[in-house]
Design a protein around this nucleic acid. Structure first.
Length: 319
DNA sequence: GTAGGGTTAG
């Protein structure tokens, strides 16, 4: 456009800056933003908001704050979008006090709170393990007439799961259903992981099936969690089946998943399966961690030493 | 000639 002397307008630049920010090229966006100002363009409130958000998401909250004041100097009053972007930035870096201060300031300016502003703060508290505070806000929402949406629930579910409170998180999941809302991938993923971590793989699989029945496509890592969960629950057979299904559908399990499975199979004397999984592991281009290797070798040595020696030679060659 | 852009989980 520039070469053809078609000067891009502010909307085109807005799209470019936003697109770069959302695709991991925030530095480039910031360069263009600064360049624009030098060439005499004046960014408006939306563009400032977009750039402040981009900077916050890169962890450059100081730069974001500078732009905030620059915007005010140029006569733009921050609106709820601008506030939320900065509040989210402070939440993410753990300065919850500053986030709360900005939230009060936003209200003093006469802007009402919204589902998004609540979700932002709840996510901030959850991220930093302050579940009591998160709950307080969650309870406050209906009292203030602010609707909870599926993001509100998902955020709290994720927070509770991280704190190993899967039962409480399940209650919220049922509440989503009870309210007639539609759960999303983010409702299921942390729950399945938490249940697997607790050794409750069967319930996790029920959730998995429920998710599939709703036409939701699970994240690949969810499958990894189920495989490790099944090992934890002592279910070698099903664990192998899930792994093979993953490989069949051309999904790449994590190295850690293979290792846990090899470790579990060898420690429960299923050496044939362990060696089979090991073959898949090497086939994916992974190498075996030393501690898992030692445990496998010592298991092999408990059996027929002659065979053990053959296997070990083969394993060492591949690793 | 007009309208058009920005925020929360993952």
């Amino acid at each position: 456009m520039i070469a053809k002397k078609r000067t891009p307008d502010i909307f085109v630049y807005q799209e470019i800056i936003n697109g770069l920010c959302k695709n991991g090229m925030g530095q480039e966006a910031f360069r263009i933003f600064c360049d624009l100002k030098e060439r005499g363009y004046s960014p408006d409130r939306v563009m400032y908001t977009t750039m402040i958000d981009g900077l916050c998401k890169m962890g450059l909250i100081g730069e974001g704050r500078k732009l905030w004041f620059e915007m005010i100097r140029k006569g733009f009053i921050p609106n709820p979008y601008t506030y939320n972007v900065l509040i989210d930035g402070y939440c993410k870096m753990g300065d919850l006090e500053m986030a709360q201060k900005l939230r009060r300031e936003m209200c003093e300016r006469g802007y009402g709170e919204s589902t998004v502003s609540y979700n932002t703060m709840i996510a901030g508290f959850c991220l930093h393990g302050k579940m009591d505070e998160a709950h307080k806000l969650f309870e406050e929402m209906p009292k203030k007439g602010i609707e909870r949406d599926v993001v509100t629930y998902n955020t709290l579910i994720q927070g509770l799961c991280k704190e190993k409170k899967a039962l409480e998180a399940m209650d919220l999941f049922y509440e989503i259903l009870g309210m007639g809302m539609h759960p999303t991938i983010s409702s299921y993923t942390p729950l399945i992981q938490a249940l697997c971590d607790m050794g409750n793989a069967q319930e996790a699989i029920e959730l998995w099936n429920d998710m599939r029945n709703r036409g939701l496509e699970p994240l690949v890592c969810t499958c990894d969690h189920i495989i490790t969960g099944l090992c934890k629950a002592g279910n070698a057979k099903e664990s192998m089946e899930w792994l093979i299904n993953m490989l069949r559908s051309k999904q790449r399990p994590q190295r850690e998943t293979f290792q846990r499975l090899v470790q579990y199979l060898s420690s429960s004397s299923r050496l044939d399966d362990a060696l089979l999984v090991l073959d898949y592991l090497f086939g994916m281009g992974y190498i075996l961690d030393e501690t898992v290797l030692y445990s496998l070798v010592s298991q092999l040595c408990k059996g027929n030493l002659h065979h053990a020696w053959e296997y070990i030679g083969e394993i060492l060659e591949k690793s």
